[in-house]
Write a protein that binds this DNA or RNA. Structure first.
Length: 727
DNA sequence: AGCACGCCGACT
DNA sequence: GTCGGCGTGCTC
């Protein structure tokens, strides 16, 4: 019997694919290929799905099967590799296939009409062509300037589209890294381990250049001659190779995007992240899918994009927590990148000054090759001096010790910039009544409402409930309510009082709520219009402030005693990262290197001691040993079953039932426990941790267990997270 | 998840 | 008499 049925993946939480009948509209219409997008009726509505298989029979009753409505023939089908990637992610994270495949597609491709899709396709056929001619014109001008002394190129010679912007010379360690990446054959996971400012970006750029160049030579051995016979003038030629560069947050790394575009002026570089407008996102996604884009620079979601000629994946700041999606399909873009590279047999570069312990462990075990950059690449730049200020001896006033104030004053006098880092936004984390003990609890969450003084509001950072700051205590009427502790707003206020003439700027989620305001804030720092910058982790990433020579860390101690065993790993990375902001451009006016001052009550804590020595190796070694002994990741694989309900007992009851359901050797099912933040927005939450030293054994168990769980009748909403990061 | 159907309370 | 609450059930 002829194959007339299509297996279609749809974006629904149902763990199945759906069968549809296909009838050609005309006798010539070809059967939709696997990977093709189709429109199908689904329940009362219509939906776009992906064809994942062909069949000629089904168990379903014939009258239940509906016809495919339309086939998106104008789009080439998704590649077998992309389908395999989605299949892996669906299996691994225990989610339906359609939930992996479809939410990652731009909305314009999932629309029921093709208007936006056709517009984007048309724009790509047109937009890229003029861009190319423009680039060529520029090339010709460059060539003329250079060829005055060089050999005159033949009049017919086409300009080399791979001609690159000027690349600075590499130091030996960088050169070795580039050679290792570009020279890799087959799957090659490489850890590029180098402190901030050691020139990792240059390694990415030159390795990318080498790979693109080699691919171009393989495609056209005739030394840059164009294949004119097959080329369709309206359709740009596919890129000989594609490079995917992942960054944690694109808005915080505009410099990288600028560097890539400047280095590869003749290549098609596209961005993929959630901040793009729909039209642009669709165009960029299509440029990648059609093979037109040479370089895709994106956030974690870009790992699920279609890249038919992918030859290299780079993950910058691979340790960054934002590579883990924290809702829906809770995937790790870093882990999927490694899988993808493995499946394609290509190199994947994991870059970091403070690698995740998982990656470090792989490198130590020899599974990942370690490439090390020991020195800062800029000639005068040296590592900043890190010191601790003992808050027991130098008591802070308004959160600032005399030592830190003196250091800031010195930088002011030298006309240099200071950055004060504090991971707490708002004015004060809690408002309290001295008289009766009332504190500003959120009425919907187990959390305090944070004082926001400029807005004169109390805000819950978990459910975003807002109230005006009460004028008097709601329980006893006392008018003297005290803000306890301090956030960035209060530090900003304190600094203004201490340094009345200084220009203080606060950068945090509150001050940059408006679109584009973060960029303009950073620009004003770059222009030297700011003396003292106060900020949360937003300021720790990416930015290279030339005049910044002092970094003060106000009170990082809380992370030392967190119940989350990953807190110290994160704190170390954060301190190293923010420390890297100091003195990137070179020496301070007084001849010293950049300076980092950490205010703490525990100056002898091993974590701070390691930061002072810039000793990631030692710190990571100790931490890994602790993890080994405590049977924590990366020596243990975990999954977390979460449940939430209006009543805590409903959630706990479900988890207890789940825990009793199946037993398996080597699988540890812990006691269900209420979550640290038990109640959010009036929903009670609890969780159950499952552990196993073998990843395949855990995977096998989860598959059966979840099938059973789906049979349970419960009022609790539940979800499973594989490889959880926040426990 | 959507989006239906379905069966009980307060409104014009 | 209708609007609408969200419980239950289905989607090829």
């Amino acid at each position: 019997m002829e194959q007339r049925l299509l297996k279609v993946a749809l974006d629904t939480p149902l763990h199945t694919v759906f069968d549809y009948r296909w009838q050609p509209a005309t006798p010539e219409e070809p059967m939709p290929a696997i990977g093709q997008l189709v429109v199908v009726p689904f329940g009362r509505r219509e939906a776009v799905g992906v064809v994942v298989g062909h069949a000629d029979q089904t168990d379903l009753q014939a009258d239940k099967i509906k016809d495919v409505i339309a086939v998106r023939h104008q789009l080439p089908p998704m590649s077998a590799h992309w389908l395999a990637l989605c299949g892996f992610a669906a299996d691994y994270y225990q989610r339906p296939l359609g939930e992996v495949m479809l939410p990652g597609l731009p909305k314009n491709l999932r629309a029921l009409t093709t208007v936006a899709l056709d517009k984007a396709l048309k724009a790509l056929g047109r937009l890229v062509a003029p861009k190319k001619t423009k680039a060529r014109r520029k090339t010709r001008a460059d060539t003329e300037a250079i060829t005055v002394e060089a050999v005159e190129p033949g009049p017919q010679a086409a300009p080399d589209p791979l001609q690159l912007g000027e690349a600075p010379p590499l130091n030996p360690a960088q050169q070795q890294a580039v050679d290792a990446i570009a020279g890799a054959r087959g799957f090659a996971p490489l850890l590029l381990y180098g402190v901030t400012g050691s020139g990792k970006t240059e390694v990415y750029l030159q390795a990318a250049a080498a790979i693109l160049r080699r691919a171009a030579e393989e495609v056209a051995p005739g030394n840059g001659e164009e294949q004119t016979d097959t080329a369709d003038p309206g359709q740009p030629a596919p890129a000989p190779a594609q490079i995917l560069v992942l960054v944690p947050e694109i808005n915080l790394t505009p410099q990288l995007e600028g560097n890539i575009r400047a280095r590869f002026p003749h290549l098609n570089v596209v961005a993929l992240h959630s901040g793009l407008a729909e039209g642009e996102r669709a165009r960029n996604w299509l440029a990648a899918h059609l093979g037109q884009a040479h370089i895709v620079l994106g956030t974690r979601l870009a790992i699920l994009s279609s890249l038919p000629s992918l030859k290299l994946i780079v993950i910058d700041e691979e340790h960054d927590p934002s590579y883990k999606q924290q809702e829906g399909l809770r995937y790790s873009a870093r882990d999927l990148a490694v899988w993808r590279a493995h499946q394609l047999g290509i190199p994947v570069v994991l870059g970091s000054a403070t690698p995740s312990l998982e990656t470090w462990h792989h490198a130590q075990a020899g599974r990942y090759r370690r490439l090390e950059l020991r020195q800062r690449a800029a000639q005068q730049a040296v590592l900043p001096t890190v010191k601790v200020i003992d808050m027991e001896r130098d008591k802070p006033v308004d959160g600032l010790t005399a030592g830190l104030i003196a250091a800031v004053r010195k930088r002011l006098e030298q006309g240099e910039q200071s950055l004060l880092f504090l991971n707490r936004r708002g004015y004060a984390p809690v408002l309290a009544c001295d008289a009766c003990g009332w504190i500003s609890n959120c009425m919907r969450c187990d959390a305090f409402m944070v004082v926001h003084r400029p807005e004169r509001r109390l805000r819950c950072h978990h459910c975003s409930l807002e109230l005006a700051i009460p004028r008097a205590c709601p329980t006893c009427g006392n008018v003297d309510l005290q803000p306890l502790g301090r956030g960035t707003q209060r530090v900003e206020e304190g600094l203004q009082a201490i340094f009345p003439g200084a220009r203080v700027l606060r950068i945090d989620a509150d001050s940059t709520r408006l679109k584009g305001s973060a960029q303009s804030a950073f620009d004003s720092v770059h222009r030297g219009e700011v003396d003292i910058l106060v900020g949360t982790q937003m300021v720790a990433k990416g930015h290279d402030f030339k005049k910044l020579t002092l970094v003060g860390v106000l009170n990082p101690d809380t992370a030392l005693f967190s119940h989350d065993y990953r807190a110290s790993e994160r704190l170390f990375a954060q301190l190293m990262q923010v420390a890297g902001r100091a003195g990137r451009a070179g020496l301070s006016a007084d001849g010293s290197s950049g300076e980092v001052l950490i205010q703490t009550r525990y100056p002898h804590h091993p974590l701070y001691q390691a930061v002072m020595r810039h000793d990631y190796d030692g710190f990571a070694g100790d931490l890994l040993e602790e993890r080994r002994q405590a049977h924590f990741p990366p020596f243990m694989y975990q999954a977390l079953l979460r449940a939430e309900a209006r009543e805590l007992d409903t959630a706990l009851g479900f988890l207890k039932e789940a825990a009793a359901l199946l037993d398996a050797p080597a699988i540890t099912i812990n006691e269900p426990i209420p979550m640290t933040l038990m109640r959010v927005a009036n929903v009670e939450r609890a969780q159950l941790l499952i552990e196993c030293p073998s990843r395949p054994a855990l995977q096998g168990f989860l598959k059966h267990w979840l099938a059973e769980l789906r049979q349970l009748k419960t009022r609790a909403r539940w979800s499973l997270e594989v490889d959880p990061v926040d426990i």
